[in-house]
Each structure stands twice: as C-alpha cells, then as structure tokens.
Design a protein around this nucleic acid. Structure first.
Lengths: 142, 142
DNA sequence: ATAAGTGCAAAGAATTTGCAGTTAC
DNA sequence: GTAACTGCAAATTCTTTGCACTTAT
C-alpha cells in the first residue's frame, strides 16, 4: 500500500494512521516527482475524504515533513511545496522552467559539469541559486 | 551618493527619485551584503523618513528589483528578502547557518569543489539546494 | 501642470491556532 | 478509555490594492 519505509517512519513517530493521513499519503505517492502546494493536496485528497479541511492538510504535511516522509521546500512564487522524499539522503536540486513552471529534478552526480550538461540537453539556463544549509564556523564550536 | 550604475538604471527606467526611494536605497547600500525583509527595510528607512508606509517599501523594493538594482529572493522561512545587486551577472549562492540564520555569500568560482572547501573553512554542511532558472527544451523551441 | 508616487486602511493569500467533537489504538 | 486527531472558523503574517492627497520633473 505504502512505499517501503513510510509505514515504519510513521510507526516510529507514533502517528495515528487516520483516513485523512492515508489520503494525503496516497496523493503524494500518486503524484511522485511533483511538487504540490497544500491547496493542491487538498483538492486531490478530497476525492477520497470529501470533507477534509485545509488545516488538517497543513498539519499532516508538516508532520510528515518532520519525519522526512515528505520534503518541504519553497520556490520564488512564495508558497511551500511538498514532495515524497524517496531517499533519506536525497539532495534537492531543482530546475524550474521560467516559461511553464515545471520543476525538474537534477541528479547529484551532475552537479559538477552541470550547466554544460543541461545546455547540451536543450535547457537554456537563465540563472541559478544554491542554498546550502549548514552550521557556520562560529556556531559549530558551540 | 549612490553606487555607480544605480542612478543610471533609475533614470533609464524613468523612476522619480523621491525621498522615500532615496531612503530605501541608502538603507540597502548601508546594509550591503545583508538580506533584508520589507519590515527590516521599513524600520531602518523610517530613521530618515519617519512616516514612511510599509506599502511604499514593498512597492519600492519591487520596482528596484525589476530594474535589477536589487535582487529579490526567498528563503525557507517564507518571506521575501532583498539585497543590493552589485553586478548584473551576480549568481546567488547562499549559505544559511541553521543555528543563527546568518546568510553568507558563496563565490561563483567556488562552486565546483564547494563542499570540501567550505568544510575546510569550518562549516558543517547539513544539506544544500540548487535552484536553476531556465527554459526547458520544450519551451525553448517556441 | 501632470503623471507618478505616497500613506492609510482595507483586502488578499498562505498559513496557523483554539476549541469542541471524533477516532485510532 | 483516552490521547491524538479533525473540521471549522477566527487569527496571524506577509503582501497587494484602491483611493484621495502630494510631489518630482
């Protein structure tokens, strides 16, 4: 029913597997590879649980991201988006088409000669932005 | 008064150089290298124009970003931040400390052996995220 | 002179929270 | 049985907009 690892993470975290959470998880699995906003998840999940509330969706997504079942991120449009995180160590490199908004995943190994590679594949790179989450030298000491 | 290029960009765009815009620009120059939210700009700029309104700050930041005097971005905290963009071709690589939230700039040339370099400098990298803005092959054709 | 810009307050959009009722374990 | 979860509506936070007044050119 759920992909390997998911049920274990939920049990370990002692989350109750409610109808609502099942619906959200199923949506995230069905839409694997897509980056969904809370509103988009709500629309899909309501097909299974019609009177599902948006607050529940937000709470569920937040909780699932906390145990790394989902990955939460934000793009320049200004709202949070979620995707199923298939591997714990999944690094997130996104290519956002400036025309259609489609989001492509970039493989970690490609990072080095990335732009050349992508241009060979037909992308026209306009800009890129790297965000590194780390502890800075001062904070690391403490 | 203003850094080279700024006044030219404003004249070219035919923006009026009002007291409010001057104040915002001065703040951005004084805080060069920092990433300021609209609210933070307001607080600083009110030292010069006490009854400055937040709407004017938003409008000013938006307009200055449109002509690339400022660079607008968003971090995981979920609100927009602005910085003075010193070069047109400035690529933005940010290191965000997970403890103190301080934002460091990463030099473009460092991208390749980036992590090793940073770890040598004392950062502890937790995760990183690359966002590439581009036209995808399908959209490029049109 | 006049088109553009401003401040205020109201409206919008995304997200969070309080609370009484419901459900998984 | 009970602690956790839910839906609803109200509250928050960030940002945008309408409008009458003001200002830079």
């Amino acid at each position: 029913m759920f992909e390997p690892g998911i049920k274990e993470k939920i049990e370990k975290a002692q989350y109750k597997l409610t109808q609502q959470r099942k619906a959200v998880l199923e949506v995230m699995q069905d839409k694997q590879g897509e980056h969904l906003s809370a509103e988009e998840v709500l629309q899909e999940a309501r097909k299974k649980v019609p009177n599902l509330g948006i607050a529940t969706v937000y709470r569920t997504l937040e909780r699932l991201a906390a145990i790394e079942v989902l990955y939460k991120t934000i793009f320049e449009e200004g709202k949070y988006r979620f995707e199923l995180s298939d591997q714990a160590e999944h690094q997130h490199h996104h290519i956002i088409c400036m025309a259609c908004g489609k989001i492509y995943e970039v493989d970690e190994a490609m990072l080095d000669s990335l732009e050349k590679h992508l241009e060979k594949e037909g992308f026209e790179i306009v800009n890129h932005q790297l965000k590194i989450y780390a502890y800075c030298p001062e904070c690391k000491e403490k």
